[in-house]
Design a protein around this nucleic acid. Structure first.
Lengths: 151, 151
DNA sequence: CATCATGTTACTTGTCTTGTTACGATCCGC
DNA sequence: GCGGATCGTAACAAGACAAGTAACATGATG
């Protein structure tokens, strides 16, 4: 497996959705993410269930942002997409009865638990409008014509 | 992919190797890890290159621990096995030119960098003899006959 | 030289995200 | 209502990577 990029992608989408207030279709978002509409629907489903976005079928339908960026943290989005595994490493489960293996897994697990707590805390401390502001700041220093993707 | 358990496995092996001072063949270790000899050789190769263990071919050969457990940290082992990816999540690379995506990846990357630093610091702060001591402590409270795996 | 054990390569398997196709359901405009 | 736009969902293929497996060469011991 390479890296799970769903969190990054959804953050990307949400900020773009805030920029243009009209609804965006899965196909538009797919082009924005360089992927295809089904993947978009699949991943955005969690965001809808948690009430961050709304989707409407039929002619003129699409996705709309329901809550302000300042109400959404990176942690919220992480949870909305199903809290995928954070770590690529993990404990072994070869000899569950072995006290050595258990001791190893406790030591490893403790370190990972701390790292996980720190990461979630950091994610919880950043709202999406903060990232949008960073984007605006960088944009101001670069008077280029096309600042963003396919939008 | 499930979890990469190489780190956990190697810690497990090294502590067992310290217990019985004679050399252990890949096959014995494989039984200990509930896997097979080739996987053992593959993973232990890094430990050998870093000088933590030695391997000898031929009759009576096998693997021996070269350095004391107190000289080896979890971080050392992590590095010896090739510093596998720590995280299962990561930045998206869909529209590298998009300033929004860049801002998102910076925010995510900062949080992950902190978590990574903390994790590595914790791994670097624990030596294998500490885990071995934890094991001995728990063993003392449990006067069972078979305390460990296949050894 | 026969045997044991590592070294190495190649191939298969399992798992998970991602990509893709197909089809059904729903909504709007004509 | 008809037709097209759009989401919802299921089913399946692709790609990546650790893990498992098989085959064979290399080297050491007795």
């Amino acid at each position: 497996m390479r890296n799970d990029s769903r969190l990054s992608r959804m953050l990307h989408v949400l900020i773009h959705m805030d920029k243009h207030q009209h609804s965006a279709t899965s196909e538009m978002i797919a082009k924005m993410l360089n992927t295809n509409p089904v993947v978009v629907r699949r991943t955005m489903a969690g965001l809808r269930e948690q009430g961050y976005v709304r989707s409407e079928k039929g002619h003129g339908g699409g996705w709309t942002l329901v809550r302000p960026l300042s109400d959404i943290t990176l942690l919220d989005v992480y949870r909305a997409i199903g809290e995928p595994h954070l770590f690529a490493i993990g404990p072994a489960d070869d000899q569950p009865e072995c006290l050595v293996e258990q001791a190893v897994n406790v030591a490893l697990g403790d370190a990972m638990k701390e790292a996980r707590a720190l990461l979630l805390q950091r994610l919880g401390g950043v709202t999406l409008d903060k990232i949008a502001a960073d984007f605006e700041a960088k944009l101001a220093t670069r008077p280029a014509t096309s600042y963003s993707c396919a939008s």
